[in-house]
Design a protein around this nucleic acid. Structure first.
Lengths: 128, 128
DNA sequence: TCTTGACTTCGAGTGTGCTCAAAGATGTAC
DNA sequence: GTACATCTTTGAGCACACTCGAAGTCAAGA
């Protein structure tokens, strides 16, 4: 996370104005750091900035917004679960296709029969 | 995948010019569809368009590019594995935080002691 | 004292991947 | 025959999330 990004997050309200040293430089506390880590973690899993802004606003309002905030996290968690599922099926598909490429390469190496590339890009469904 | 997106993919060379009906309308074959599904699957797992363009170009060149193409897929598969790991740790973090919110809500419901929100946003490391 | 370097502010610019609008052709239903 | 929907083309526009640049301030080291 770059300094530029931290400034940006502050500008858009994801980070509350943080403490300063005498010279005006920002001084991040451990709590600030933990919050920034959390933000980073949510962004890294594709939570939109908008959603994070909403969460940050509710957080400022205190415990009474617990339910709303929990809902946001639960929704995002469901989203993450879906992402994982999609990634896993893509991973499996790639295993399949990579194996196929290895076969093609072996055939080329031994100067074997040049058969039409079998099903590598045409018949393998993404989920298969 | 919208029609707009399909046109876009054709424009940027991800899809070769496809067959047409007499009226000029595009007619996608099953092979076209399979390729489009593959593209969709790669995009859905965050492969950049650039990489997909490179792969598509190599594909046009035939079997001799097998090794290069395989490398692209293997790299992307590694990327996917990393994504999964990150998502899983975020998922675990959220489980933790959600449980915490439930505690807070219970405390509020029974009118219990209003203790400072414990460690929800400040001490939980993202990986914890 | 002077240089160096790390910070500050602010607004503007960039890359990615779509997404849409406008104008026109064609086929189907009434 | 005339609506209507659905496709065609092209170039422009947009959302998102940064990312950068310019000009200025400040503190420490040579």
């Amino acid at each position: 996370m770059t300094a530029h990004t931290l400034r940006y997050y502050e500008r858009v309200g994801l980070i509350q104005p943080v403490g300063r040293a005498r010279n005006g430089h920002r001084r991040y506390t451990q709590a600030d750091e933990a919050w920034i880590n959390f933000l980073h973690c949510m962004r890294a899993t594709s939570m939109p900035i908008r959603q994070m802004q909403l969460y940050a606003e509710l957080r400022e309002l205190g415990d009474s917004t617990s339910l709303e905030r929990r809902k946001i996290l639960e929704d995002h968690q469901a989203d993450i679960a879906a992402q994982i599922t999609e990634l896993q099926s893509a991973h499996a598909l790639l295993t399949h296709k990579i194996a196929n490429y290895k076969k093609i390469e072996a055939r080329i190496r031994i100067g074997g029969p040049r058969i039409e590339e079998p099903a590598v890009d045409s018949t393998l469904a993404p989920a298969s």
